[in-house]
Simulated assay, not measured.
Amino acid sequence: MSPGLHSERTRLAWVRLGTVLAAAALGAAGVGLRHRAGAGVTVLFALAALSGALLLLRTGVRFRRVERALRDGRPLDDTLDARVAWLGVLLLVAGALSLVLTLAP
């Protein structure tokens, strides 16, 4: 295996995470809108989709920072991206729970 490919795999993992987060949130928001679940549910899903989009937008910047940190032999601080991902997943779960509770008879 070539050195440096781990940063490429990590970049692709962030792309997958952002894409799945945004797509799942948008799909769930569509379900919520079709079933008239309420604005709160839609807002949770919209914020989750926004966090996925933000992760996708930051992919290029993050990749260049990782490459630079590896080249310079210094540690990389990914706390902002990890927190955005955590928040997006938390919003998606909260929206899903709210949607289920809203639609339950």
Score class of each variant (00 low, 15 high):
S98G: 15
R16F: 14
R9T: 15
G40T: 14
L44T: 09
G95W: 03
L26Q: 10
V20D: 09
V100Y: 14
L56G: 05
L97M: 09
H6A: 15
A69H: 10
A22Y: 04
R58D: 07
L97N: 02
R16V: 15
S2H: 10
L26W: 06
R74A: 14
R34T: 06
G32M: 01
L54Y: 15
L87P: 00
V66I: 15
V84L: 10
R71K: 13
G40V: 11
L33D: 07
L97K: 10
L103R: 07
R71E: 15
L101T: 06
V20K: 05
L54G: 14
L76D: 12
G18C: 04
A46I: 05
G30K: 02
R74N: 09
G52T: 06
L17C: 06
A24R: 13
R64Y: 12
W86K: 07
L12V: 09
A48W: 03
T19Q: 05
A82F: 10
L33W: 11
R71I: 11
P3N: 14
L54T: 15
A13C: 12
T102G: 11
R34L: 15
V93Y: 00
R36W: 08
T10P: 00
D78A: 11
D81G: 05
G18R: 01
A69S: 14
L21M: 07
V100W: 13
R71D: 15
A23D: 08
T79C: 04
T19G: 02
A94Y: 01
W14K: 03
L56M: 06
L91S: 04
G73K: 02
R62D: 03
A24M: 06
S98A: 15
R34N: 12
A37Y: 01
D77E: 12
